[in-house]
């Protein structure tokens, strides 16, 4: 038995196919979902991929958040459906208020693309169970609007509750508060991060590392053992 993991394609999504491939490499079945369909095709989990949905018009993720598919994703995420937002997907999740805080333009105003070192701060979410707490990983980061912000009360709450899932190491690439690269919701089923684990799943490409693969094996194990 395996799990069916949906990947939503919005107009302007770029990494939907890479994400489907990563899911397949992990041993799960990827299911293509379309932004105009409310139907999630009975998938066991959903990934909102990277890209520039709706051209980042208004704010990154602001228009996608009101697409028909998101009505269902929001409803089911609140009921426990595991959801992962990568880059633009993370922006959609903050705009949908499934995750706290908001994303703004990088503080240096440039697009950034690099192999980024991260520390796994929470290995207990639905998407990080195959990492070790405190593990240091390298996965690609590529974005324009990667600056995570939240008010001081929310930041303190996230830190106190262990809801910062990933933190940037060695350098802060975008001015994110507390070096935050990814966060989770209270239940741990919704995770969002700016770097791209789906681009680090095969030794042949990229940095040669497969540090992103545990995202997809984590969720598979969680679903199959559930």
């Amino acid at each position: 038995m395996t799990a069916r993991i949906g990947v939503v394609t919005f107009p302007g999504s770029l990494d939907d196919r890479d994400t489907q491939r990563a899911i397949r490499l992990a041993g799960a079945d990827p299911v293509a979902l379309w932004h105009k369909d409310k139907d999630l095709k009975q998938v066991d989990a959903v990934v909102l991929p990277g890209g520039f949905s709706y051209g980042d018009y208004l704010r990154a993720g602001a228009i996608s958040r009101f697409s028909p598919v998101m009505d269902t994703v929001i409803e089911q995420a609140k009921a426990g459906l595991p959801v992962l937002g990568i880059c633009n997907g993370f922006q959609v999740l903050t705009e949908a208020h499934l995750l706290p805080g908001a994303m703004l333009g990088n503080d240096h105003l440039h697009f950034i693309c690099r192999d980024q070192k991260l520390r796994v701060e929470n290995a207990e979410t639905a998407w990080t169970g195959d990492y070790r707490q405190g593990q240091e990983i390298h996965i690609p980061l590529k974005n324009m609007d990667g600056r995570y912000v939240a008010d001081p009360y929310t930041l303190d709450k996230l830190e106190a509750e262990g809801r910062v899932v990933f933190r940037y190491l060695d350098m802060n690439p975008n001015g994110s508060l507390n070096d935050i690269a990814g966060v989770t919701n209270e239940a741990g089923n919704v995770v969002g991060l700016m770097p791209h684990p789906e681009h680090a799943v095969e030794p042949l490409i990229g940095s040669g590392r497969t540090d992103g693969l545990p995202f997809f094996t984590s969720i598979l194990k969680k679903l199959v053992n559930a």
Binding site: L58, A62, T94, E95, P100
Partner: peptide, 8 residues
């Protein structure tokens, strides 16, 4: 709900 994100 849309034109502004009142978080920021």
């Amino acid at each position: 709900s849309f034109l502004a994100n009142t978080v920021i």
